[in-house]
Amino acid sequence: MRMVPITLYLALAAILFCIGLYGVLTRRHLVIVLVCVELMLNAVNINLVAFSSIGPFANITGQVFTLFVITVAAAEAAVGLAILIALYKNRKSIDVIKQDLMRW
């Protein structure tokens, strides 16, 4: 049985993280920014699972941390969407530039 090398997992995770970072830094739509943050968290999950399967002490610690990250990401998405709905109801826009909370 041929195993996939760890470098391919790390390359995939780096590409996903860079795409998510690019989206967070360049997009103006808050829903897209939230999706890009989730993409970055998934890249972290790939790294955790990949590193938990290598080495002389391979165990399920990375997989357990991945479950915690998925749980936190789900809570973050729920709270983020609730905040976005409240912003849209109050300001009628979810553009990042228009969401200056100090300006009324």
Rank of each mutant, 00 (worst) to 15 (best):
A78K: 04
V72Q: 07
A78F: 13
L12Y: 01
R103E: 14
T7A: 02
V96Y: 14
L10I: 01
Y22T: 14
L67F: 03
A86P: 01
N59S: 06
R91Y: 05
M102T: 15
V49I: 08
I83M: 13
K92E: 03
V31Q: 15
E38Q: 13
Q99S: 14
L87H: 11
A14D: 00
D95M: 09
F51P: 02
L34D: 11
V96F: 14
A13S: 01
Y22S: 12
R28W: 11
V37E: 12
V49T: 04
P5L: 04
I83R: 11
E76Y: 10
I46T: 02
M102V: 13
I15T: 08
L48E: 01
I85V: 13
I97M: 12
I70H: 06
L21I: 09
G80M: 05
A77N: 08
Q99V: 10
L21D: 08
L34G: 14
N45V: 15
V96S: 10
N59A: 03
A50W: 00
V49H: 01
L67C: 07
A82Q: 11
A86G: 05
A75F: 10
A82I: 09
A75E: 04
I54W: 00
A13P: 00
L8I: 03
V79Y: 07
V35G: 10
R28E: 15
L81S: 06
L101N: 08
P5Y: 00
A43Q: 03
D95E: 11
Q63C: 06
P5I: 00
I97F: 11
L34Y: 08
S52Y: 00
L84Q: 05
L101R: 12
E38C: 07
T71N: 10
L101S: 11
V4W: 03
P56R: 05
